[in-house]
C-alpha cells in the first residue's frame, strides 16, 4: 500500500466507525474535533488492527496519539517496519 492508500483507509475506517462527517486533515483532533473518548480509543485500536491486519494494542506509541496525523504516521511506520522485517 502507498502512504496515500494507508491514509485513505484510516480515514474511511474511522469515519465509518465513529460516524464522523467532518473534514479530516492531519491536524484533526481525535478528542476535541472527532469527539472520541477513552472507550472509543479502545475501539480505534481494534478498527486499525482489523483494517491493517496488525497488532498494536500493546504499542507504547498508541498512548500519545492525539490527531489523525499521529495515527497516519504511526500506522505508516508500523506497516513499513513489518514490510522490512
Amino acid at each position: 500500500m502507498t502512504d496515500q492508500q494507508i491514509i485513505e483507509l484510516i480515514n474511511s475506517s474511522l469515519a465509518e466507525e465513529f460516524e464522523y462527517q467532518g473534514g479530516m486533515t492531519p491536524e484533526t483532533s481525535l478528542f476535541e474535533e472527532m469527539g472520541l473518548d477513552s472507550l472509543d480509543v479502545v475501539d480505534l485500536v481494534i478498527v486499525l488492527e482489523t483494517a491493517f491486519d496488525m497488532k498494536i494494542r500493546e504499542e507504547e506509541a498508541i498512548r500519545s496519539i492525539r490527531t489523525l496525523g499521529d495515527i497516519h504516521k504511526f500506522v505508516i511506520a508500523k506497516k513499513r517496519q513489518t514490510e522490512s522485517a
Partner: peptide, 16 residues
C-alpha cells in the same frame, strides 16, 4: 461468541 469461537480470541471485542 460467533466471533470469539473462531479463534478463542478477545482481540476484536469492542469496549461497549
Amino acid at each position: 461468541f460467533q466471533d470469539f469461537n473462531k479463534d478463542n480470541s478477545l482481540e476484536r471485542m469492542k469496549s461497549t
